[in-house]
Nucleic acid binder design. Structure first.
Length: 487
RNA sequence: GCCCCCAUCGUCUAGAGGCCUAGGACAGCACCCUUUCAAGGUGUAGACAGGGAUUCGAAUUCCCUUGGGGGUACCA
């Protein structure tokens, strides 16, 4: 009998979807899909104070954007409180949990004291034996005095807890070093530990795939499963994603939310590919994967143990590869919203799709991000060019020789009947020769005159799209600038 | 401090005792192509953290040191 694989992605809605957490989702999803299992989404919203509005929608958007579809959920822990309370009661009845009346102040002082004395910090188990040693109605007294207790797990004082992590192998923790952690907070919500264990069991999760930061909690969870009479699932603790300074990737390192990457113009295919390779690899050479190939080849056995730095350079390269692979229509369609958003608002809308489609072939292989498209093609849209006159004067040329070259060119262009790239090339190459200029010198001056840039797509194609009229006008303007400079 | 995890080029990684004078990719550099910029091509530089042990033989196994990271909450 083969067991159906069930994995889950369990983010807390305390912020926007971090690429690290999305990478975790991706691996859990890939694992489920590879095994023909189920993938579910569960929102761990048990911290009322840290909830961020819009976070759930952003998380779900991020998943959908990458094509990570889920079979169940999203479940919300805040709607499942009863389940956790039942589990808590069970633990109390079995003597595996107890109420704790210690005030936050007392706990804080205790912690300070422990740090000062250099002993391992942790709850001192002050209330652990309260119900047995004190009078039976003590709890009643405390509660009427306005103290709402928390529920703590009664940690075994001896022995060790060990488990087999799929990625890390055998891991062992001493029970005596773990404190009696909180299961139920005084506001009635469960902590992560309780809710997570109860839900993973109830949802029949077979493989808990999560980041390494959870590794130290794993033994607590295993003890909880056991105390609850559950069979623990398999665990796979993924390596962390680090920022360039080797600390856990965070806002300080720049963009961390998957939605930010989307908005900058990264392609979901590229993002998926890149994230898939962060901590996992197939072999020593394959870099490019489609979603299907990722699913087909993914395995937890090939996930590395080492934390990985998020390498934006490589992401950019990969995104460029994916952009170049797009069909022209697809690229145009994807670039369009960026042009629409980034071009000056006073320009008339809607933008001409036909015109945009003339330009995109020239931009496609030059853009690494869709967000760069506007900047790379501005002069095709904006009438006014703003550039430094000196850029018109190329190496080995003077203001005068440039003026002369542009004057002649202008005249010749004016006589032209067909203003296409081939005609322009024939004309301008021979013209450069006649003017005794290197092709680059003439073309360079012309390029700046016509686009205001020193780096553009091939000149003749660019001019053809711009059209004769606009080119002549811009050459005229360039000449004006040059003449002002020479007086 | 204590606990846990990890350790191959700057970065992502391949490597599961001889195939390794350690392979690939990004980034770097050089050259080629070329009207500029890209793209592409060719080439180059660049790593097994250190020390022991096991073995005929170690990047690969074990131990120690060092380094890095994570955890240590009525946060997840």
């Amino acid at each position: 009998m083969t067991i159906l694989v069930r994995t889950r992605f369990a983010p807390s809605p305390t912020g926007f979807p971090h690429v690290g957490s999305i990478r975790t989702a991706l691996f859990a999803w890939l694992f489920a899909r590879h095994h023909g299992g189920k993938f579910l989404v569960r929102i761990e919203d048990t911290d009322v104070t840290r909830k961020v509005k819009g976070a759930v929608a952003a998380i779900l958007d991020g998943l959908s954007w990458l094509g990570l579809d889920w079979d169940e959920g999203p479940y919300f822990q805040s709607q499942r409180l009863e389940l956790y309370h039942k589990a808590a009661e069970y633990l109390v009845s079995r003597g595996n949990a107890y109420y704790c009346y210690c005030s936050p102040q007392r706990l804080e002082e205790m912690r300070k004291e422990q740090v000062k004395r250099k002993v391992p910090p942790g709850y001192d188990r002050h209330c652990r034996n309260l119900s047995k040693t004190a009078s039976p109605n003590l709890s009643g007294q405390k509660e009427t005095a306005g103290i709402t207790p928390v529920l703590r797990f009664k940690m075994p004082l001896t022995d060790q807890t060990r488990f087999q992590d799929i990625i890390r192998g055998n891991v062992v923790f001493k029970n005596s070093l773990m404190d009696d952690f909180v299961l139920l907070k005084s506001d009635g919500y469960p902590t992560y530990h309780l809710a997570n264990v109860v839900d993973d069991h109830k949802m029949e999760i077979t493989h808990v795939i999560r980041a390494e930061e959870w590794l130290p909690s794993a033994p607590r969870h295993i003890l909880l499963y056991t105390a609850l009479g559950y069979t623990p699932p398999q665990f796979a603790h993924l390596p962390l994603i680090l920022g360039s300074d080797r600390s856990k990737l965070s806002k300080r390192h720049g963009a961390v939310s998957i939605t930010e990457y989307r908005d900058q113009g990264y392609l979901p295919e590229a993002m998926l590919n890149f994230l898939g390779l962060l901590g996992w690899s197939l072999d020593d050479k394959t870099e490019l994967f489609t979603q299907e190939e990722l699913i087909k080849n993914f395995s937890l056995e090939r996930v590395s143990k080492t934390a990985a730095i998020f390498n934006t350079e490589k992401l950019n390269w990969m995104n460029g590869v994916y952009i170049r692979q797009l069909s022209l229509d697809d690229f145009t369609q994807r670039a369009f919203p960026f042009l629409d958003k980034d071009l000056p608002p006073m320009m008339k809308r809607p933008l001409s799709v036909d015109y945009v489609r003339q330009i995109t072939p020239l931009i496609q292989e030059r853009a690494k991000l869709l967000g760069e498209v506007t900047q790379l093609s501005r002069y095709f849209f904006v009438e006014e060019l703003d550039y430094d006159v000196n850029l018109l004067i190329n190496k080995g040329m003077t203001c005068e020789s440039t003026i002369q070259a542009l004057e002649v060119t202008k005249e010749r262009l004016r006589e032209l009947e067909t203003f296409d790239a081939e005609t322009l090339e024939v004309l301008l190459r021979s013209l450069a020769e006649k003017l005794k200029l290197k092709a680059g010198q003439l073309f360079g001056a012309l390029r700046t005159a016509v686009t205001g840039e020193t780096a553009t797509p091939p000149l003749f194609q660019t001019m053809a799209i711009l059209g004769g009229e606009r080119c002549l006008r811009r050459i005229e303007e360039a000449l004006d600038k040059l003449k002002k400079l020479s007086v």
